[in-house]
């Protein structure tokens, strides 16, 4: 079969909603796009453990501490499911992680913002997980089988993440004026970075069109961002919090909320590594890997010794 024929057959499968599985023929660019996107996604889960992890030891009560631990732990699990999905494409996990540490691979910029108060933990659950779920629900139908299956599992598990964040903010908003101010401050700081999570505008997005044709992505960045704004504004109203955008207004004609332009300068600066916590986040991950080196080595050495003893 010629390359052109293989490509045609591949696209037919995609068009007929037949999932692509690891051993199937796929265009190299499809494979590379997936490795890039899934590993970015995996890195985001793992780096995403850090801002919230900061508050595990300071959680205000035992219930919240357990919930936060379980949530951050889920993120480690989700990172792991996603690294496994990249491994089905022939990408080695260790190499993938090294690419994160060297700065070659990216992760969601939101995690370069600091979690400064307890309310930030609520805001991260509500907004950051909310935005992530918007993305992830769409990805449950992505064309690559292992990615789609990982997303189904992740979405199922994450359904509590957003709810716990919202519930936690609800308590603050019904609490003292000091607590409510803390919640408002968290929203002020996390609103725009949350909107940035959907990536650049469609016109600026280099990978969007091809990814849509391959059904890796089902919706464009701007479509998902709009859905997020539409879903979130009423939730903020119930909390009694004000979204920090003077231009936010319901547009009857469009049937959507209008909102201000994102500060794209800030977006690109943070992507390039100049966010408030980029350096600390990568440093923490590099340190974990280095400190774990002798542990992983030891377990391998032990396994080898045991295998030798068995065969001897």
């Amino acid at each position: 079969m010629t390359l052109a024929e293989q490509e045609k057959r591949f696209q037919e499968k995609i068009d007929n909603e037949i999932k692509i599985e690891p051993n199937d023929w796929m265009p190299d660019a499809y494979r590379q796009t997936l490795i890039r996107q899934i590993s970015q996604h995996a890195h985001s889960e793992v780096v995403g453990m850090l801002p919230e992890g900061n508050w595990i030891t300071r959680a205000p009560n035992l219930r919240r501490k357990a919930v936060l631990l379980a949530k951050v732990q889920d993120e480690a699990g989700h990172g792991l499911y996603l690294y496994s999905a990249t491994e089905t494409l022939g990408a080695d996990r260790e190499q993938t992680i090294d690419d994160l540490h060297s700065g070659k691979a990216k992760y969601s910029s939101i995690f370069n913002y600091p979690a400064l108060t307890w309310a930030d933990i609520g805001a991260i659950g509500w907004l950051v997980d909310g935005a992530a779920i918007m993305n992830q629900v769409a990805l449950c139908r992505t064309s690559y089988g292992p990615y789609a299956r990982a997303m189904v599992k992740i979405c199922k598990e994450e359904s509590f993440h957003q709810r716990q964040g919202y519930e936690s903010l609800m308590v603050l908003c019904n609490g003292t004026p000091q607590q409510k101010a803390m919640a408002q401050d968290a929203l002020n700081r996390f609103w725009w970075p949350a909107l940035m999570m959907f990536g650049p505008n469609d016109a600026e997005s280099t990978h969007s069109e091809q990814s849509i044709n391959w059904k890796i992505k089902r919706f464009t960045n701007d479509e998902l961002r709009q859905s997020f704004v539409d879903a979130t504004v009423p939730q903020a109203e119930i909390l009694g919090l004000t979204i920090p955008d003077p231009n936010l207004k319901w547009n009857e004609e469009r049937g959507h909320y209008d909102f201000s332009e994102i500060n794209w300068d800030e977006f690109w600066q943070v992507v390039k590594g100049n966010g408030p916590c980029n350096k600390e986040r990568i440093e923490a991950r590099v340190k974990a890997k280095q400190n774990g080196l002798w542990v992983r080595e030891a377990a391998n050495a032990y396994a080898k010794k045991r295998a030798m003893k068995k065969s001897a």
Binding site: G53, A284, R296
Partner: peptide, 8 residues
């Protein structure tokens, strides 16, 4: 949490 020697 977040700093273990390997994700597992």
């Amino acid at each position: 949490c977040g700093h273990g020697p390997i994700l597992e």
